[in-house]
Amino acid sequence: MRGGRFLLLGVVALIALMPLFAPWSKTFLVLAIAKGLAVLGIVVLLRAGQVSFGHALFFAASAYVAAFAARLLGGGELLTLLVIGALGSGVLGLLVGLFVVRYRYIFFGMLNLAFSMVFYAVLEKFYHYTGGSDGLILSRPSVLGIGLERLPFEYTLFYVALATAAVLGWLVHRYLNSAPGRALAAIKTNETRLEYLGISARGTLLVAYVISAMLAGVGGTLAAVMQGLVTPEYAYWVRSGEFVFIAILGGAGHVLGAFAGALVYEGVRMYLAVLAADMWQLLLGVVLLVIVLFASEGLVGLWHRISGRFAPAGREAS
């Protein structure tokens, strides 16, 4: 897969340099990366065969925690906010996870949905604290103590997001291939056998759950800082559905798939909304249908199929 690796590096380099040619693409790319991180969280849980339909909960929770923190700190520091946001969603992930890991499949999915919708309702109702549906404004945080103007700040944010995605993606890849990660996969194939081995399925799933919550949290804070505003929309069920969709689009088991899927999804969505302001939902639905029906292995699967034609025999499995 040598050729594949170089091509991949090429694509990443292209993305890294895109804002220099198209300045407006920074927003789009940072949001795609933020969503990609949340999708990465879904991918982690998918390894255990469980789908969460409420991950927007963590995406939103960290965004709001970051917004409140920024207020308390009088602006705050970019990296600090990312850490605080991730911790916030991690704690919430622990609390929710303790309840939710007792359930499987549809119940797991729906309970997550329930929690996210409760949070959504709370965000809208407690108007005086959360700003209701108008949301909270998040002013530009400083970076390493320096207050930046809009343009340099956006560039910095973009490269920070890219770096964060790379690091977290690599870490998740290592996690999934480690012992706890394989135990996670065993939950999907044969949970009883796992318990017989003396490994607690619930414990393993809980660890994975908290990790996935924190991933979604980092994504949420990034999105919030980029947009400068957090709204209850962040927690709505359609957003959770999007995360699941992108996970499948990218390729259900793959780390890279999460980001590839997010980029393609955001790109398609943006262009459809521009080209056909009246019908973008319909066209997006059709696109999604086509993908599920004809390319259900997702983009990564497609990639393997295509590059498999060019590779010599005896490829390593990834």
Binding site: A22, P23, W24, T27, F28, L31, A223, Q227, L229, T231, E233, R269, M270, A273, V274, A277, W280
Partner: peptide
């Protein structure tokens, strides 16, 4: 620009129209 497509879409489309 369709506000119904969400604020994220509004903001990025707004930027694109003005900057590009």
């Amino acid at each position: 620009i369709d506000e119904g497509a969400g604020s994220a879409h509004l903001l990025s489309e707004y930027r694109r129209l003005v900057q590009s």
